[in-house]
Write a protein that binds this DNA or RNA. Sequence first.
DNA 1: GGCTGATATATTGTATACAATATCCTGAAA
DNA 2: TTTCAGGATATTGTATACAATATATCAGCC
Lengths: 235, 235
Amino acid sequence: MEHLYTKDESSSADQVYQRLRRLLIEGFYPPGSRLVEERLASDLGVSRTPVRQALVRAAAEGLVQIFPNRGAVARSFTIDDLLEMYDLRALLEGHAAYLAASRITPAQLSRMEEAATELEKSLTYTFERRQDEVHFLVEHNAVFHQTIAEAAGNQRLITMLNQIVAVPLQFRSFYWYRREERQISNFFHRSILNALRLGDGDRARAMMREHIFYGRDVLLQSQRAESAPAALDEE
Amino acid sequence: MEHLYTKDESSSADQVYQRLRRLLIEGFYPPGSRLVEERLASDLGVSRTPVRQALVRAAAEGLVQIFPNRGAVARSFTIDDLLEMYDLRALLEGHAAYLAASRITPAQLSRMEEAATELEKSLTYTFERRQDEVHFLVEHNAVFHQTIAEAAGNQRLITMLNQIVAVPLQFRSFYWYRREERQISNFFHRSILNALRLGDGDRARAMMREHIFYGRDVLLQSQRAESAPAALDEE
DNA sequence: GGCTGATATATTGTATACAATATCCTGAAA
DNA sequence: TTTCAGGATATTGTATACAATATATCAGCC
């Protein structure tokens, strides 16, 4: 058996894609900005050819929009887009949690355990920069969620979740802002872990869904509070 | 508001992709066969450049696998792959049916009605070639299912379903083989329609899930009966 | 001044050339 | 006969050139 992934992963040109993806998610190319191929090419130190492929891939993933003969644009998200995505995330991750309950291995459980613990301890950490903190949180949170998807044992489900979760970090960072919300989030993690340990798929799914809907509501609230819908520019 | 789709649809090079996709789904390039760029290029009457992009896109969609420096291969499906896909289809289409129940328009309902009726009437039709019949059935069936996805009103859900349903026709054609199975399938269509008309989301979802699982079981049975797992070549 | 059309510029889309890599084939040695 | 090395061939990966298209600029006209 060879590589699991369908994409040309770990190849050289694949790195262009990975970097572009990162730049988009981290908000270096903010939503709505034009992605001129030549510019990206010089930014990334390659020719337009691999850039083009990366853009096509990113478009398939929904990170950019390509308009024929008019170029690519970093995708911007409306409130409705976010709602759609959270709806699907709840569905897919809930299902993943359900499946994982009957298949998860001890190694995977302890990996999740560790991630959850790190997230809890980090409430007392102090970070140099706010950005470092967000990175830390996003990273460990990703481990938690990805391990569940992995434990579900459905490769396509993983692919789909990766697509959905590929939302610019700008949006997700709100989530981690307040202490109270982080504590609730940690509580959800513990509940999910418990359900998985007990092999209770229904409860794992229910908790996961609540966890995600909670995140959605926090995000929506912060969006409303923030600079109003201006940040989410509709075309 | 501009185009709904993220891809560079309806553009010129996009057609290369559409044609490649069709060739793959219709089994012209059978699962497991190598997709040499030059060959595709001459087959499609273009240079390697647009072919390459089409391949990248098809890989993102899961129709082909790209191995770094070793080219693309028409994806082959194992039994487990099919099970994974049907599992996700049940989840996503079930959800779509649930959402559609509260949003579907009369126009959409009558479109589905029409498709269902055509499928029923076709039991008495006689077709020139078996292939024509399969095409007819697949086409009307697609209308039925796509309308539900559309009525669900979640663009991402549509995209995901398109990805999942992009299975080589070779597999799907089994489904339509026997009269009894088609009748049961038609019955499911009517049940789903009823539930949608009544706005009963739970029932619509349940029926849709059964419908899809039934299709899965028919497929699996035919696979087992057919040339054994040889047709589903593992690498 | 504002509109219209023509030209210039910027950018995308495609083809081709060449480099990098993998695969195949041949022949010699064990 | 099998195995391995080395070169020949096939194919992918990238850069670049040019064509096609869209956008911007500006002169002329009302």
